[in-house]
Amino acid sequence: MSRTRPPFLDGLIASLPIVLGYFPIAFSFGVAATRSGFTAPEAAALSLIIFAGASQFLALALLTSGAPVLVSAFTLIAMNLRHVLYGPALMREAGREAGTRHAWAWAFGLTDEVFGQALGALARGQRFSEPYMFGLGLGAYASWVSGTLAGAVAGGGALDGWPALGAGLGFMLPALFLALLLSILSRRQLPVIAVAGAVTVVATLAISATSGILLGMLAGALAGLVRR
């Protein structure tokens, strides 16, 4: 971490790849929401309140298909269950003395990508800081909500004339995950990574994408137990 910059600003700067990755996805979510018959404020409300990409797309599908409210909510909740593991995994790397006084606020921004970026920073020797987490989460959140609003206002077809740009922006998240994976890669964690990857492929093909993510993560974490 830079000694000349406040940690909050460091976090905000570190959120740049997430900001660039989130905006086009949030934009396409805004477009999809208006296509499903929701208004721009309704699309923005979903992003403001839920702040979890894949489950928001699922929310659109459930709400428009007429699924019961509680069934819809339960499905979305089950889909985000993996986030339970992120806090403890992050705090374990942060160390026993790391402060959590304001976690009730910054932890809302602990999405997949924010978690990955924060973990990568700790793996590179950066000291844990709550203002840094605020900066990181806020950048991601602002990008997600403003992207949604922009997409909802622009409506369908906004990127249709620019397929290469749309494709490049769409590749931002896989690229980010790969870069994060490289940044935390160590020989010790190779079996964990291999098991997680393999189980994700098999479970995605055999069951569903959501199951693939959940089972892949669990299998990888369990592989961490077996090795010692």
């Binding site: 993996r82 593991l85 992120y86 403890p88 995994a89 992050l90 374990r92 790397e93 997949d112 978690f115 990955g116 973990l119 896989p174 995950f177 790969l178 994060l180 994976l181 935390i184 890669l185 964690q189 964990v192 990574i193 098991v195 997680a196 990857g197 994700t200 492929v201 995605t204 994408a209 693939g212 993510i213 892949g216 993560m217 669990l218 299998a219 990888g220 974490a221 369990l222 592989a223 961490g224 137990l225 010692r228």
Partner: peptide, 17 residues
């Protein structure tokens, strides 16, 4: 040990997905 392996497992899973 489970939590320590969760991070790499999660990032690997998200990249593959």
């Amino acid at each position: 040990r489970f939590f320590s392996a969760t991070g790499p497992a999660a990032i690997a899973t998200l990249f593959v997905a």
